[in-house]
Write a protein that binds this DNA or RNA. Sequence first.
RNA 1: UGUCCCGUGGUGUAAUGGUAGCACAGCAGGUUUUGGUUCUGUUAGUCGGAGUUCAAAUCUUCGCGGGACAACCA
Length: 563
Amino acid sequence: MTETNEQSTKSLNFIEALVEEDLREGRNGGRIQTRFPPEPNGYLHIGHAKAICMDFGIARNYGGICNLRFDDTNPVKEDVEYVDAIMEDIRWLGYQWENVYYTSDYFQQLWDLAISMIKRGLAYVDEQSAEEIAKQKGTPTTPGIESRFRNRPIEESLALFEKMNRGEILQGTMVLRAKIDMASSNMHFRDPLMYRIITDHPHHRTGYTWKVYPMYDFAHGQSDYFEGVTHSICTLEFEVHRPLYDWFIDQLQQDDYRPRQIEFNRLNITYTVMSKRKMLQLVQEGLVSGWDDPRMPTLCGLRRRGYSPAAIHNFIDKIGYTKYEGIIDLSLLEHSARETLNESATRVSAVLDPIKLIITNYPDQQEEMMDMVNNPEHEDAGSHEAPFAKELWIEQDDFMENAPKKYFRMTPGQEVRLKGAYIVLCTGCKKDETGKVTEVYATYDPDTRSGLPGSERKVKGTIHWVSAKHALLAEVRLYDRLFSVENPSEEKEKDFRELLNPESLKVLNNCRVEPWLADAKPFDNFQFQRIGYFSIDPDSTKDHLIFNRTVSLKDSWAKSNPL
RNA sequence: UGUCCCGUGGUGUAAUGGUAGCACAGCAGGUUUUGGUUCUGUUAGUCGGAGUUCAAAUCUUCGCGGGACAACCA
């Protein structure tokens, strides 16, 4: 194994440190194997991305392998729809698993193991109701009591377990339990359920073949063991399960090899919710447009919002892995997007809230093609052309009849630069009977065309524009935080649905974008100069362009000049 | 009145007994054909007490605070 080298500058997180320690001590013969084990019962979100980057990252960085395993032990909630979506999202993040496994592949092995445990007196069939079993569990501070079936003859349990799986026992009336310790201080040791009967739902892969299904605690560790997983990395809520994970593995261990469960903190982000239950509720109640609503923290939602895999990785790299349960500022996610997109997004002109600007001294029929730099961060990104003419659209915001001192935009008597074109002098405006400004007037200085020496003159402001004659009409969807409070899950008084931000989506239907955008494809990223980063929605067509705002540009003017 | 886990600026994260650093957010300024980017400066932190040590964010201990665990979910 490669020891310390150029990596010395970057400190390891505690999981990497543990892995390196295992490697140093030669555990499992120096082999590294991880797994990403989603249950196919929902869509992946940004929190899963954190886990995926860990699982696949450890394998990649330490010369190991990472498998994808669908933890499909509960047919009631699972579906192939989710299997496909999960695989798509992982690939999108840029990872490729070594193998795809399903816990359901191990149903026979798990069954055999359960039989062996019954034979060894380590498991028994309990005929009590769920309520009785729950009552006998005790509480964290009081011991439980033993089931009256706990010490039934081994042959009896064996026969009943067989009957359970032949469909001869009614669902909900019998379970298989491990015989451990009803007085344990760890609730999970109080004779945990190993199997329950499910006959009313087909399994998405095995159909009605099995009538009994293993529970998580029994199946997960065993599956890790069957596969040869060395590091079973999961989130903190499984910490109390770890002793049981180890206990079950003790029951079948045949050699020196041992998988090791390590837990890290789950990702929380301000102004959103990350629980599957709550996300499902938002989708089912139509409070968002679907799992891929750009306001959702799902990977498909973020993708539709305009986040690239690079932006997601950039974010995950910044947040770290610890055992402290905190909440990350949404601004860090936004920063990660801006930082990534600033490097890659092509700059274009788009006017979201248009007002007409007429260059009064520009020849009526004249048109010029202006050279527009694609990305000032990268010269080799080249440039594209945009048409300029007498009538332009500019932002309403960029004109003020009576402007404050530090307003560096269009106001009568002030010069401003039209980005990539000419310096113009604002001469006035036209208003309707209500006093609303309907047109802005300016004169241009022909010597100041961009590229000409005359353009070197300093002017305080630069604004963007599009040619009125050539611009394309577009719909622009402005997304903002989904919730109006930092931590909706912490709010005790109100239901989380009452905390939704009513302004999380604003649709603008009268936007004008430069004609060069006519051929843009879904998920392409652009910077609308001076406004923000936008990407093409998958519903967008040539005749009806739709842009989603990924994130706005930082705006120190708006910040210091609130309305 | 149990077991386990966790407490470092507003937020997240480093420092593995030896100078408390980084990022985001904030504030102030320089540069700029994006009020973007970039650059510079700056505000702000080891939960508390006791102990060990030449030296403690780090080790011990007692508190305090937060979280997880009592689904036929994963």
